[in-house]
Amino acid sequence: MKILVIYTYPNHTSLCYAFLEKVIEGGNENPNIKALKVLDLYDEGFNPLLVFNEHKRRRDMHLDPHLNKYREQITWADKIVFIYPIWWGRPPAMLMGYIDQLFASNFAYRDKKGLLPEGLLKGKSVVCVSTMKGPANYPFFWLNNAHKILMKRALFNFVGIRKVKFFEFGNMESPKGNQIKKLEKVCCYFKNVKR
């Protein structure tokens, strides 16, 4: 199994970065994982802005040479891991800009007759590790589970990815947030995951 980790947080002394370290630690101890690559969107200087004009059209994003490297990473990976905070009930703009550009028509999906497209990323799986300041049940009770619906149904299922696991951790700024226990839970998952 080949894993691509997409890390989206601007601070390397953060809890999000500690989760990244635990994913790497667990992955390095798992004999089922052949290779693990990390894409740090902030360190990379990834530009999340969409630009469309007479020279750059939305329908041609799958051909954009500036995105070749990122498309190759997604194609290479069996499992894609996203690590990010939940801000305002959804992932950060940096990650959404990456998704807007990479999960494009004729790369991640293809339009066909009927209501839904053909997902072109079938066979891959996804893990979302997200942190938030608010309580763990906040997105479920107050936002009708909007974060998970956005990520699983509106994005991953749309492009053919059916296997999606969430680690959605709340109360992460609280001294009673059980951060160490949650970090170990993620590490343990990656030590043992088979596919």
Rank of each mutant, 00 (worst) to 15 (best):
N11T: 09
G177D: 07
Y9L: 08
K182F: 05
A108H: 14
I3C: 02
N106R: 13
V51Q: 06
K79L: 09
D43Q: 13
G89E: 13
C128A: 10
N32M: 03
L39C: 06
V159H: 01
L143K: 04
F52M: 05
A18S: 15
K181R: 12
D100N: 15
A154E: 11
M96Q: 13
I86T: 11
N28F: 05
I180R: 12
N137W: 15
F46D: 06
G97D: 10
P91E: 13
L115T: 11
K133F: 11
E72W: 14
L67P: 08
H55Q: 13
K37Y: 03
K122R: 10
Y189N: 02
G123E: 12
V193R: 09
L20D: 02
F141E: 09
S105D: 13
P85N: 10
Y17L: 05
K176D: 08
F46S: 06
K148P: 08
F158I: 03
E29G: 01
V186C: 03
K194A: 06
I161S: 05
S105C: 13
E29D: 04
Y9S: 05
A154Q: 14
Q73L: 15
Y70F: 12
V5W: 13
D43S: 14
G177P: 03
K165T: 11
K181Q: 11
E25G: 01
H62C: 13
K34F: 00
M96D: 10
S174A: 01
A146G: 02
N30T: 05
L121M: 10
F46A: 03
R71P: 09
K22E: 08
Y17W: 14
P85T: 09
N144L: 14
V38P: 00
I149F: 10
N192T: 12
I80L: 07
A108S: 13
N178W: 08
I161K: 01
Q73I: 04
F166T: 01
T13Y: 15
R195P: 04
N137V: 03
K34Q: 07
V164Q: 03
N30V: 09
V38K: 07
Q101L: 15
L155V: 15
F82D: 02
P117T: 01
L49W: 13
K22R: 07
G170S: 03
Y138C: 00
L41I: 00
A104C: 15
H147L: 08
P48R: 02
V38W: 05
W87C: 05
E54T: 12
L120V: 06
G170V: 02
E72C: 05
K124T: 02
L4T: 00
Y189A: 01
G89T: 15
A136H: 12
G89K: 14
W87Q: 13
F19Q: 08
V5R: 10
